[in-house]
Simulated assay, not measured.
Amino acid sequence: MPLDETTEELARTAATGDHVALGELLRRVEPDVLRHCERLLPYRQDAEEACQDTLLAVARNIGRFEGRSRFSTWLHIVTANCARTTYRTLKRRSAEQSSDDLAEQRPDPHRVSVIAGARLDLLDAIEALEAEKPDLARALVLCDIVQLDYSDIAAQLGIPLGTAKSRIHQARKHIQASLGDGYLGR
């Protein structure tokens, strides 16, 4: 989700409390946020929900954007977190519904689409890793979902470069064990 310098400047201006800049910023980033959410979630309406959650989170938290990293990096992280939260919410709702209600819902993406099922399996594996080893999960998400380079991951997490690489490697081994040999990262 690389953003141009005008958008980066809008973000810095919005972070100072400029509501006009914030409105323009949200308008500019919405298509990129939606595309990113669509890569993570199997259904468009779920991606749209995650996109709206992301834009709301950006609007609420823009004052926390300090400009130490690029806005695009910050936005990637917020987007990935909102998509994962949407996924968890949908999964919880699905589990809470009775079996009668399940027949009326959308088909199970694990059975209908290989791509959607693989994405859901990956999100499940990341969720399990996060519960067990959150430091590894954060590094993996920044690398393989947000697609930051190693130096940006190290800076974002406040750890040495070698530690970032090690965490990503360990996380991939855990995910690979969960999913079988189908996951190798990027």
Rank of each mutant, 00 (worst) to 15 (best):
A118T: 10
V146W: 08
K133D: 04
A125M: 12
A155Y: 13
A155G: 12
V141G: 00
L161E: 02
R111H: 09
A155E: 14
V114P: 10
A125R: 07
D144L: 11
A128W: 05
A125F: 03
L122D: 11
A154H: 04
I126F: 07
A118Y: 00
Q156L: 06
A131H: 11
K133L: 12
A155Q: 11
Y150E: 03
D135A: 14
L136K: 02
D121G: 06
R138K: 15
E130L: 02
C143T: 05
E132C: 09
Q156G: 04
I153L: 06
I126S: 06
I159M: 11
E132A: 13
E130W: 10
D149H: 14
S151P: 00
V146A: 15
A125I: 12
E130F: 04
V114I: 00
A155S: 15
S113E: 10
A118C: 09
L123W: 04
V146S: 05
P134N: 13
A155F: 14
Q147V: 13
L120N: 01
L148F: 05
E132D: 15
I159F: 02
I145S: 00
L157S: 04
L129V: 08
Q147N: 14
L157Q: 10
A128T: 12
D135W: 02
V112D: 12
L129T: 07
G162D: 15
P134Q: 11
A125C: 14
I115T: 09
D149M: 11
A139C: 09
P134S: 11
A139E: 08
V141I: 14
L122A: 03
D152S: 15
L148I: 01
I153Q: 07
